Simulated scan of single mutants.
Amino acid sequence: MTPTGTIIEAALKELRQAVSGLENAVDGRFERQRESGEIESEVRRVHADRSKLAQELDQAEFRANRLEEVNREVSRRLVTAMETIRAVLDR
């Protein structure tokens, strides 16, 4: 092969390597973007789940507080009823 042919072959080899490196870089970039998109989707799902759980917790706390209030009222009424019964029985 002539020196010019060898130079062209070497240049073509370097060009192939450069194109291969570029393809690998592009593939890697696409993969990172895909993974990033998946991570962002997962973060959105986690935030939605967190919001839902926070809302459910608020509702549960409200119900617990309401039950506590009702329990106190029932207890108060029972005490009043027991006192009334004792007063009737003492007569």
Rank of each mutant, 00 (worst) to 15 (best):
L67R: 11
T80P: 00
R91H: 09
D58Q: 09
E61L: 03
A48W: 00
R45P: 04
L67G: 04
F62V: 02
R45Y: 02
T84A: 14
K52R: 08
T84C: 10
S51G: 14
H47K: 14
R66A: 13
A87W: 02
L53I: 15
T84K: 15
F62S: 03
L78H: 04
A60G: 01
Q59L: 07
D90V: 11
M82D: 06
E40W: 01
N65R: 15
R76A: 12
E83G: 14
L67I: 05
E42F: 08
D49W: 06
S41N: 11
S75A: 12
V88Q: 14
K52G: 10
A81P: 01
E56T: 07
S51R: 14
V43Q: 03
R76H: 12
R45L: 10
A60D: 00
Q59A: 07
D58C: 04
E38T: 13
L53N: 00
E68K: 12
R77C: 10
V46E: 04
K52Q: 06
L78Y: 02
N71R: 13
R44H: 05
Q59F: 07
V70A: 04
R91C: 03
D58N: 09
R63C: 01
V46K: 10
H47V: 12
M82L: 09
Q55R: 05
S41P: 03
S51D: 15
V46A: 11
A48Q: 06
R44V: 13
R77I: 15
V46C: 09
V79S: 03
V70E: 01
R44Y: 00
E73I: 09
V88P: 05
A48Y: 00
V74N: 00
